[in-house]
Computed example of a mutant assay.
Amino acid sequence: MKVSVSKIIYVLLILSALLGWLNSPTALVLGFIFTLIFNNPFQSFSHKAINYLLKVSVVGLGFGMLLKETLETSKEGLGLTAFSIFLTVGLGLSLTRILKIDLKLGHLITSGTAICGGSAIAAISPVIKAKNETISIALGIVFLLNSIALFVFPALGHLLNLTQEQFGLWCAVAIHDTSSVVGAAIGYGDEALRIATTVKLSRTLWIIPLSIFSMFLFKTKGEKIKIPYFIILFIGAIIINSYHIIPEPATSFIVTISKRLLIATLFLVGSTISVKDLKSSGIKPIILASSLWVFISIFSLIYILN
Rank of each mutant, 00 (worst) to 15 (best):
L87Y: 07
I225D: 12
S280A: 15
G118F: 06
V275H: 02
Y52E: 15
T272L: 11
I246C: 04
K131Y: 02
S271Y: 01
T272M: 07
A122M: 13
L99D: 08
A289S: 15
E191I: 12
L150T: 03
I175W: 04
I121Q: 04
K2H: 12
S4T: 14
S24Y: 03
I231V: 15
L144N: 03
L162D: 01
L93M: 13
I101T: 03
W206R: 03
S111D: 08
R194V: 01
A196D: 04
K55M: 13
N306Q: 12
A184N: 10
T251F: 06
G79D: 07
Y188M: 07
I239V: 13
F86G: 14
N40A: 09
T96E: 12
Y303L: 03
S74H: 05
I254E: 07
L292A: 07
K224T: 14
L19W: 14
T70M: 13
E76L: 08
A138N: 10
T220S: 11
F230Y: 14
K48A: 13
T96Q: 02
Y188Q: 04
P41R: 00
F143M: 12
S291R: 03
S274K: 04
S16M: 14
E76R: 10
S111V: 06
S180P: 01
V11M: 15
G222R: 09
S180A: 15
G236T: 09
L66R: 10
L169P: 06
F63L: 13
I240Y: 02
Y303P: 01
I135T: 14
K200A: 09
M215W: 00
A138I: 12
G118E: 13
H176S: 02
L160D: 09
N161L: 10
F143N: 11
G106Q: 02
A289D: 15
K259H: 05
G118I: 02
F38I: 08
F34H: 07
L13I: 13
L28D: 05
I85K: 02
H176D: 01
F45I: 08
I124C: 00
S46Q: 08
I263V: 15
F63W: 11
A184E: 05
G64N: 09
L22G: 03
F143C: 06
L78N: 04
G106N: 05
F230D: 06
L99Y: 12
I246R: 05
W170T: 06
L205Q: 05
S300L: 02
W293P: 02
A130L: 07
I128Y: 05
I263Y: 08
V142E: 01
S214M: 06
I298P: 09
T96N: 03
A172Q: 06
I240T: 12
S211V: 05
S291D: 11
W170Q: 08
K75T: 06
T134F: 03
A289W: 03
R97Y: 11
F45C: 07
L159W: 09
A82H: 07
L28Y: 10
L150G: 03
K219V: 07
S136D: 15
K219F: 09
A82I: 15
Q166P: 04
L301Q: 09
K259Q: 15
S4Y: 11
D277L: 06
R97N: 15
L266I: 10
M1I: 10
N132P: 15
K104H: 07
V59Y: 05
A237Q: 09
S111Y: 01
A27Q: 00
L36S: 14
W21I: 10
L301H: 06
I207A: 08
L144D: 04
P249Q: 10
N23K: 11
